[in-house]
Design a protein around this nucleic acid. Structure first.
Lengths: 208, 208
DNA sequence: CGGACAATAGACCGCTTGGTTCAGTTCCGG
DNA sequence: CCGGAACTGAACCAAGCGGTCTATTGTCCG
């Protein structure tokens, strides 16, 4: 109780999670057998089942953990003093990076596949991924509007638009293996396009 | 040979496909058992296996068929005489509708889930869905630029941007069950936002 | 009307799965 | 260095899986 453990009841807990993480992200829920996981984790079946009552709960735990990890890599807006172009470019790069990374893609795939069977995973994913980005973007945009840097009527819509623009091409083409990688250059081009489009719509200079 | 059949070797062929379609779209590849499918199709196992050598091939056939169906509902650009705002609004509605429909969502989900195991399904889906939309949008935009209606430097990027803007919010929130339906009104609002943004970036009036 | 033959239903097979059990081994704090 | 908790490995189970096989039904042509 004094060290690290509280809920987790044994020394191999982390091994189990880590092994399950790798196998589930690679093979999905159905594709991963419990034996695969124990092998990957270097742990016996009995040990695994001493931590988790069944495969479903183990999966939920892993999936939620990955969603939390995803949240950690999400955008943050510290430097709100710079011009919107600058702030949005930096934020956009983070969004595009996550969308094209192996990690982001794997988590997305597995959450989409199992969102029907495990609805809470769907919610968790949204909340810690697109939802979080959306929320932080909204907060930033509100500030920028108040500061007179941007002119936006429907801020939630604008936030969704910007995020979606940064994922244009990148996400879908990686998901379906049309591109095996995205160069930083190409990604930056897409982000630049997103910022340009966003600014020409909501920048203070061009009011309609 | 005189009637309807040519390739398909029996009268229950369509029943099999239809049953498999329903079960696969509902439960995915692993989630669907062959017995489920025969039950749903009202057909015996032997009958099914007389048409398809194994479950994998049946799935591929169904998935490809659904991709073809998806292609049929994709955007088309007949009326290119109207103003870009009008043409894009109509096209955008089609894109947003498909993205938020049960059909579009199911096909997307199942293709994402199995794109790793069946790479050709990933390609087929892209080709008959986002890829087709992109291609047709590019063709239209090229025309509009030539006609002097729009000013676009990177047409493929612009096409991707527009399509993505129309799917903003709609797609993700439906995928993860944050909204069970999308009213036509709300959808139209998103499409209007997409068109406005697109026009303020690429409309001929606002050159930078 | 009858016989040949394809289509069919569903019992059946071998195998893998998630999950359990248990006798024995390792680890670690006191 | 001891005692108990954590861990192991393998054997084991029932259930469900994809796929096959055979006995029966239905159909069509002479």
């Amino acid at each position: 109780m004094t060290t690290t453990a509280k809920v987790k009841r044994g020394r191999k807990f982390d091994q189990v999670i880590e092994g399950a993480r790798r196998v589930f992200l690679r093979d999905g829920f159905d594709g991963a057998s419990v034996d695969d996981i124990t092998r990957e984790a270097g742990v016996s079946k009995a040990t695994l089942y001493s931590y988790f009552p069944d495969k479903r709960l183990l999966f939920l735990e892993v999936a939620k953990g990955e969603c939390r990890r995803q949240a950690e890599t999400a955008v943050e807006f510290d430097d709100t003093d710079s011009a919107p172009e600058t702030v949005l470019t930096i934020a956009g790069r983070r969004i595009a990076e996550l969308a094209s990374s192996d990690f982001g893609r794997s988590v997305f795939r597995v959450c989409v596949a199992e969102a029907e069977r495990f609805p809470e995973i769907g919610h968790e994913f949204y909340k810690s991924g697109p939802g979080l980005v959306r929320q932080r973007l909204i907060a930033y945009l509100e500030g920028a509007v108040a500061r007179g840097q941007l002119a936006i009527d429907d801020i939630p819509l604008a936030a969704a638009q910007f995020a979606e623009l940064c994922r244009a091409e990148v996400h879908v083409r990686r998901l379906f293996h049309l591109d095996e990688t995205f160069s930083a250059k190409r990604r930056d081009g897409i982000v630049r396009g997103a910022v340009e489009m966003f600014m020409s719509r909501y920048g203070v200079r061009n009011r309609d």
